[in-house]
């Protein structure tokens, strides 16, 4: 039993199983859409899991990268006549490139200084998306062309469900492999102590930068999928509150746990849908829940549960 719990592939198999089951029990395409949003935000949060959970670096501006990916898919086809799918890739590359350029200097900062630097980056990206009306459509956003995948026009909740689920599976597989690779071990080492990691011969700044770029690519792909699925994108996607939401997903689920990240994303995507009956109190309840989780389950849901189960098992 313990072996199953600890196996690297268990979360992936569990995830795939859930993905296969949801369409069977989902009563309407509304439920499918919510599930697809869970997969997309999980993907964005997974990048942060690599950055925060593995490498121990915080980013309070990560929605900025999500915005870059989303607007690449919106702007490319509309303004340059490019294929949306190509733009999804270009957006990921662009986002990674921006992360590399920005990350090189700011990853030298530590703790709260890194937090304010990433926060500032996010604010600037959101401001540009907001202000360059000619290019981005301004605060009311811009519509996004339909995506054609090898001649197949992707529409409808079920199709988007499978596309987003597939993207998340690939992302999760990659993240799990990174965790088990020498790079992953190096990242965890610098998470625990940068000084010790340096002493052990790890090129700390290169590893941090790699995690940052990777996290940006994850967010950009998720952003691109979100834009293409909704058919419309607004600068809200890159806002500070979205960055906070992404961080909350990572922490609520469990810092550094892939399955936990998905659970955290599911929690925060589903919550507003579950709280509609208490509309007036939604914000208060959301704030309270975040606090309660952080205070009583600082390790996140999944690691705490795992610890509990392992403790009960002989």
């Amino acid at each position: 039993m313990k072996a199953i719990l600890r196996s690297r592939l268990t979360p992936l198999l569990a995830l795939a199983l859930v993905m296969a089951l949801v369409p069977m029990i989902a009563p309407t395409s509304f439920h499918l859409r919510v599930a697809a949003l869970v997969w997309i935000f999980s993907l964005a949060a997974l990048g942060l899991t690599i950055l925060m959970g593995y490498a121990g670096q915080v980013s309070l501006g990560h929605a900025g990268f999500l915005g870059i990916g989303a607007y690449a898919v919106a702007i490319g086809p509309a303004r340059l006549g490019l294929d949306p799918l190509l733009c999804l890739l270009l957006g990921a590359v662009l986002s990674g490139l921006v992360a590399w350029l920005v990350g090189r200097p700011i990853l030298r900062l530590k703790g709260y200084y890194l937090a304010i630097a990433t926060l500032g980056f996010g604010v600037i990206v959101a401001l540009i998306l907001h202000s360059e009306t000619e290019l981005t459509g301004g605060p009311d956003g811009m519509s996004v062309a339909r995506v054609t995948l090898f001649g197949w026009r992707v529409t409808g909740a079920l199709n988007w469900y499978w596309v987003s689920a597939g993207a998340l599976l690939v992302g999760a597989l990659l993240a799990l492999n990174i965790a088990a690779s020498p790079t992953g071990r190096a990242l965890r080492a610098l998470h625990d102590s940068e000084v010790a990691a340096t002493g052990a011969g790890i090129d700390v700044s290169a590893k941090k930068l790699a995690a940052f770029v990777l996290a940006a690519v994850y967010a950009a792909v998720a952003g691109g999928l979100l834009a293409a699925m909704n058919g419309l994108i607004t600068p809200e996607a890159a806002s500070f509150s979205h960055s906070v939401e992404l961080v909350a997903m990572v922490i609520i689920g469990g810092l550094g746990s892939v399955f936990g990240t998905v659970l955290g994303a599911a929690f925060l995507v589903v919550l507003p849908q579950a709280l509609t009956a208490f509309q007036e109190y939604e914000q208060a309840v959301l704030g309270l829940l975040i606090m309660v989780f952080m205070i009583f389950l600082p390790q996140g849901i999944v690691p705490s549960l795992r610890a509990l189960i392992e403790e009960r098992l002989p």
Partner: peptide, 20 residues
Amino acid sequence: ASPVTLIMITIGASIFIKGV
């Protein structure tokens, strides 16, 4: 708790204060 956790607690508090 870690700094990130503490940040998130106060962000939660901020959302809660606004909600109330």
